[in-house]
Design a protein around this nucleic acid. Structure first.
Lengths: 148, 148
DNA sequence: TTCATTTCTATTGATATCAATGTATTTAGT
DNA sequence: ACTAAATACATTGATATCAATAGAAATGAA
């Protein structure tokens, strides 16, 4: 019988130390927890905050561009809207110009939630900012954009 | 009646452009899709690859350290192990030295899956690496670690 | 106009993620 | 040894994520 083929432990350490995907997933989970904790008093998760903030526009956007902006699957956006609709913070209406599409907008109450969440975002983000040397944050954002 | 308080659109644009959490979540989703697509022929997702690779050690680790390494909640790890156990790629056994704990190890078949996945990871990671200017990747990893 | 194609979204099923909570076991203080 | 506290993990419930698929409407080619 063929003996098991194994990956050497050194390779495991190399992958662990160099894998960009793993590094980004780790940071994503850590930052998500951080912002979720901070935003909890406002009743929002980090993802809900980003989504609702992206809906704060002069004109209600259709779903496609919003999903693209957040770099998420369209079906994920459909699902993410459900709890926000239930809470009455977001409305999803048929686009009169294209009846396949939907237009997303914040309700008055949704805007109020966002107003309460904004200072939390500001202070939390300022704290994160302080964790990295000056100027480094801009480059980090640029690099993350290149990966998106 | 009090008129609605709104966040100016300029603030929305500022948050969209500067929020590190959003940038990291975006990159995390994009990279996850990229690696998931590449690893699909091997039957693994990016997260399963990272998890199984982290189990490729001389001694089977308990769950706590593995969850910490991946920067994920312990309950998430419990859930993530389920499909891998079902497929017979990972075994979860009681720790004889501490009967509260579990020891995680790859099966022979699990190691074989990992062997098949490794070259996919290598080529995919090389492609990502090429997207960023030389030397920038190392700094990016360092910054992501600082956020974790 | 008609029909094939494309576009926009929803649904289903599977996994991922975490908070809240519960259980069993170990450890520490006495 | 006994008990309180801490530790390690599992379960439940809710949301997040995407692939596969399906439906409806718009678009384009003839």
């Amino acid at each position: 019988m063929s003996n098991s083929i194994e990956i050497p432990f050194s390779t495991t350490l190399m992958v662990r130390d160099t894998c960009l995907c793993l590094h980004v997933q780790r940071a994503a989970r850590a930052l998500a927890r951080l912002f979720d904790d901070a935003l909890r008093p406002a009743g929002l998760t980090n993802g809900q905050f980003s989504l609702m903030m992206s809906l704060n526009r002069p004109e209600p956007p259709p779903m496609g561009p919003v999903a693209a902006l957040l770099a998420m699957d369209q079906t994920t956006l459909t699902a993410a809207l459900k709890p926000l609709q239930r809470k009455g913070w977001v409305t999803v209406m048929e686009n009169p110009r294209d009846r396949r599409g939907r237009l997303l907008s914040l309700t008055t109450e949704g805007k109020a939630v966002l107003v309460r969440a904004l200072p939390i975002w500001e202070s939390t983000h300022a704290m994160i900012d302080g964790k990295l040397p000056d100027g480094r944050v801009a480059r980090l954002r640029q690099d993350l954009l290149a990966l998106s």
